[in-house]
Each structure stands twice: as C-alpha cells, then as structure tokens.
Computed example of a mutant assay.
Amino acid sequence: MSKPYPKEFRDDVVRVARNRGPDVDLEQIAKDFGIHFTTLYSWLKKADIEDGKRPGSTVTDAAELRAAQRRIRTLEQENEVLPGGGVFRSSASAGKMSYPLVRELAADGIPVTVTCRVVKIARQPYYRCLANPVTDAEWAQAHLADALFDAHRDDPEFGYRFLADEARDAGLVFADRTAWRICSENGWWSVFGKKRRGKKTKVGAPAHDDLVRRDFTGPAPNQLWLTDLTEHQTREGKLYLCAIKDVWSNRIVGYSMSDRMESQIAVDALESAVARRGRKVAGCRLHSDRGSQFRSRKLQQTLWRHHMLGSMGQVGSAGDNAAMESFFSLLQKNVLNRQTWDTREQLRIAIITWIERTYHRRRRQTTLGRLTPIEYEIIMTQAADQVA
C-alpha cells in the first residue's frame, strides 16, 4: 500500500497545477512532483468538487453525514437510558443516578460515555471507583470537604481555621491540619489572604542537548533530520516556512508554510515528514536551533509520540545548524530575492515548485556524487535491496 501524501503537499500541487502556464501540461507537473498523472487528476477533481466547480459530495458533506449518523445512534442509546426507555424502565436500579446504574447499563450494551452524560456524572470518578472502591476514610473526608466548602461558600472571607470551626459545629471531628490540607488542595482561601506572586505562564519545555556536534552526516535514511524556520515579506505580509531536511540525501522530507510564526508550523512540518517517510522514524534525531517553536510542548509531545529524539545547537551559533542554513541560503538566492512578491499564494507556489522540481530533481550536488537527492535515494535504496 502506497504511503499517503500530506494534505499541505496535495494542496500545493493543486495550486501549481491550476496556475500552470499554457505550455505546461499536467503530465509534466506530475513528473516534477514525483506523483502519477492519475493521482494528480484525482486531486484536481476533488479540489473542484470542494470549490463547487464540479458536482459531487464534498469532504464537509461526508463528514456532516457521518456526524449525523453518529448522533442518531447516540440519541437512540440516550433514549434507552432516559426515563421511559426500555433499559432504564426495566432496570432494578431505576431512579438511582449512581455508579451501579452505569455499570448495569454498560453490561446491557449502553456505552458508559452516554450514560454518564445523561445522568450528568463524570466518567473519570466512575472508573476510579471501579478500580479502587471508596474506603471509610475517604467517605469521611468527602463529608468533611463538603462541610468546609459549604462554609467557604457562605463566608468566603473566613480562613481555614474559621471554616474548621464551622464544620465542627456540624458534628465532624478532625484536626486543624486536616482542614488546612483540604482547603489548600482545593484553593479555598480567604478573600483577604495574601496574594501569591509568580509567573502566570507555564514554564517552557527544557532545551535538548546537542546530539549532532556539527557532524552533518547520516549513514542511512531517517537517522538525522535538520529543521529551521525562515520568513519572507510579500505585499500581503510575511510568509513563514519551516522545512525539514534528511542529511542522508539532503532531501526536504517535510515542510509547512503559514502567515504566523507559531509552534504549530513546526508540528505540521514534522507530521508531514513522518507521513512522507512512511513512519519508520523511531530513533531519528531532529536537530534545530533553540527557537521557541522548537522548544514548545506541542513539538516535544509530537517527538515523543513518534519515538524521536530532539537535538539543539547553542544559542546564537549558526554553525551548529549550518547544513540547514545552507539550504535556506540557496532558497533565498534562487526564489525569495528574485522578485517582489505580491501575495503569499504566489510566493508559496514558487517555493514548493523550486523545492520539488529544481532542488529535488534537477540540482545535482557534489556531496551526493553529482546526483540529485531523488536520484541518490533511488540508487542507494536499490543497492540496499540487492544486498539484502
């Protein structure tokens, strides 16, 4: 089964095909981007349907139909739970909106999610209760927490000691330290209490160690990827590009472009690279600078999900990512600085066309034995298959 193409790549190919010159046919564009002609024709057909230029069911219509079907099934299940429904009416626990009811309906085929939503209880406490039944101590503490909360709601200016006195008047026996612990865990402080100072923002993810040490070589594919961000001005505003290069063949295996420099652009570029390389990326090192986009929690979670390793150069040291800087230098001279760009769309088409048509398939590189990145990958892959 062929690997899927990232959505951003498909959209860019459609843009190039729609904006082609009169002397350029679709077969030539398909060849330049390394896809089959029928694949390109299919993408154009789907794009015309989405834009209303051709009759057919759009992706939105299909998604709405599936959502409606799921909603109908959910309503049918909720009808079984609600009073008057078959399961609820025949249940021995009818009228008890509690965990035993949820467990009984789950045994009859009603999903726990549906029952909890109808009877308005949370799923997490239900599952915790199944795993660890409530002890007598927890039951007593829950009653104490309720009493402290009621006292705090009635008199929010009271500190934990006054709240403890109110709870004792209700007949509960406990120590002041217990009341402090419960109030501290739930944030039930006096409105006149001292304001806490400190940062209001979350602490960013720590930087990775430099696992590359300026050794920009890779003996095999998907062992070392380099990434960086660049930007260029158009009359509409700036366009930001995040690209990922495999040092084994110097091929740009993933990219993402956006009008905003946020962490999502780095995440999208990484997901695009993983999709195009067939998801065989476990253990691959992703080397970057220490920009906030690469230190974001979203990107760290994406690396962890794909079992990849992060690597970062030193602050203000461009040489620690020189191999990626060289690619952006080529892009700057060959595309970005060639003319004044009116729109982001125009610049986007120029960038993706240069990468896929020129850099990947026409520009020969000395480090690859005067081969293009695509030629190098084909030859080396065939050689590895013959050895195996």
Rank of each mutant, 00 (worst) to 15 (best):
A170H: 02
T201N: 09
E166T: 01
F174I: 07
W180S: 00
R213L: 07
E185I: 12
N186K: 02
G204L: 10
V173Q: 07
I182D: 02
A207V: 07
A170P: 01
W189A: 08
W189C: 08
S190K: 12
H208V: 06
K200S: 10
T178G: 08
F174D: 08
D210Y: 01
D169F: 05
A205N: 14
G171L: 01
D215I: 08
P219K: 04
V203Y: 01
F216R: 07
I182S: 05
A205E: 13
V173H: 08
K202W: 03
F174Y: 06
A167D: 05
F192H: 15
S190A: 03
I182L: 15
I182K: 04
D210R: 02
D165K: 07
G198T: 08
A205D: 11
C183Q: 04
A207M: 04
K202G: 10
E166I: 00
F192C: 14
R181G: 12
D209S: 15
G187C: 00
F174Q: 09
V173G: 03
D165A: 10
R213C: 06
R213N: 14
N186C: 05
G193P: 01
P206F: 07
D176P: 14
G171F: 03
F192G: 15
G187I: 01
G171R: 02
F216T: 05
A179H: 04
R177M: 03
H208P: 00
D210K: 08
K202E: 09
K194M: 12
A175N: 10
P206A: 12
R196D: 05
K199W: 09
G171V: 00
S184T: 11
N186A: 05
T217W: 03
R197C: 12
D176W: 05
S184H: 15
A207W: 05
K194T: 15
K199D: 03
R197M: 07
W180N: 01
D209V: 13
F174A: 14
R168S: 01
K194G: 10
D209L: 13
T217G: 02
H208R: 13
R196C: 06
K195E: 13
G204Q: 11
E166S: 00
W188L: 09
P206G: 08
N186G: 00
A205Y: 15
G218Y: 11
D210M: 01
E166Y: 00
C183N: 03
D210L: 04
T178Y: 03
A167T: 09
S190G: 04
A207H: 01
R196Y: 09
F216S: 13
A167Y: 02
C183S: 11
R197W: 09
E185S: 02
W188E: 07
A205H: 14
E166N: 00
D215H: 12
A170M: 08
K199Q: 07
D210I: 04
T201S: 10
R181V: 11
G198V: 10
F192Y: 12
V191A: 02
D176R: 10
I182F: 04
K200L: 07
K194C: 14
L211H: 13
G171I: 00
W189T: 10
G193A: 15
T178V: 12
S190D: 02
V212L: 01
L172R: 00
G204I: 09
L211F: 08
F174H: 15
